[in-house]
């Protein structure tokens, strides 16, 4: 309660500068506590990375931010662009400007990727010519007749996810392990595509905020992240320069982080 009160005061005093504000978030999945009091905030256009061992709660954090019903909020609040979205569903959050690139997206049998592309293009005012350019850049044109994610390789899956986000045009993107299951050639392609998605490759492009989960840190070769966070045991325990953090993790694993915790 005290934290919420403090946050309200903070909002008034800071004129809602934060794009995302998470206050004391406790989340459970089928009775198991996966988030244990997360406090987290991001400004407009910020790009942050999340590190952490397997099972630390990183993906659960992203899924909770997106509003998947399986992730039950037991306590705390999520504010997006100053609005309390804690009780909003996935669709409402997507419409407000949150997008998610899944680590392992589901197959949607019988629905071609092309159909989804046309649907998203139409509803977000993207011309066929623009779509064509995006498809060319992502080298995914030859796959669009297939059912969504059906038999896609790791790289194809990630490219399809980034493609969908490009058509969705969210203000804030959640990217869950963009390198997992992707070969080195595709990592470069996906990395450049994410950079483009975030508007980092052009001076005048609108900048999108992003939260990226990474284990390997390869993505940092392509995307210039502002800050890194370490997630352990359902909580954010520290922040810092993402490259320094990555180097530390590579040297010593998460043992040092246990101390911080």
């Amino acid at each position: 309660m005290l934290k919420l009160y403090v946050y309200k005061f903070y909002l008034r005093s800071n004129d809602m500068q934060e794009m995302l504000q998470v206050v004391d978030l406790w989340v459970s999945v089928e009775g198991k506590q996966v988030l244990k009091g997360v406090d987290f905030s991001m400004g407009y256009g910020d790009v942050y990375v999340l590190f952490g061992p397997n099972g630390a709660g990183k993906t659960s954090f992203m899924m909770s931010l997106m509003g998947f019903p399986k992730y039950k909020v037991d306590q705390g609040k999520i504010f997006f662009k100053g609005e309390d979205v804690t009780n909003k569903d996935v669709y409402e959050r997507a419409k407000m400007g949150i997008g998610l690139s899944f680590q392992r997206p589901p197959t949607v049998g019988g629905v071609s990727l092309e159909r989804l592309i046309n649907l998203l293009g139409k509803s977000n005012g993207i011309s066929e010519e623009e779509i064509d350019v995006i498809l060319d850049n992502l080298k995914i044109k030859e796959h669009i007749k297939r059912s969504i994610n059906d038999g896609f390789s790791g790289g194809e899956m990630k490219r399809s996810e980034i493609l969908q986000l490009m058509l969705q045009k969210p203000e804030f993107v959640l990217i869950d392990e963009p390198e997992s299951g992707v070969d080195m050639e595709n990592i470069a392609l996906v990395g450049h595509a994410i950079n483009h998605l975030l508007g980092k490759d052009k001076v005048r492009s609108p900048k999108r905020g992003a939260l990226i989960i990474t284990h390997t840190g390869y993505i940092l070769d392509f995307v210039n992240a502002d800050k890194g966070y370490i997630f352990i045991n359902g909580r954010v325990i520290c922040s810092g320069n993402p490259r320094d953090m990555l180097n530390e993790i590579k040297r010593n694993g998460y043992k040092g982080c246990q101390v911080c915790q």
Partner: peptide, 16 residues
């Protein structure tokens, strides 16, 4: 839910 996270409403997602 996957399709809803793309900004497609529930009825349209079910229909699709």
């Amino acid at each position: 839910e996957y399709l809803m996270s793309r900004g497609i409403n529930k009825d349209d997602a079910v229909s699709l």
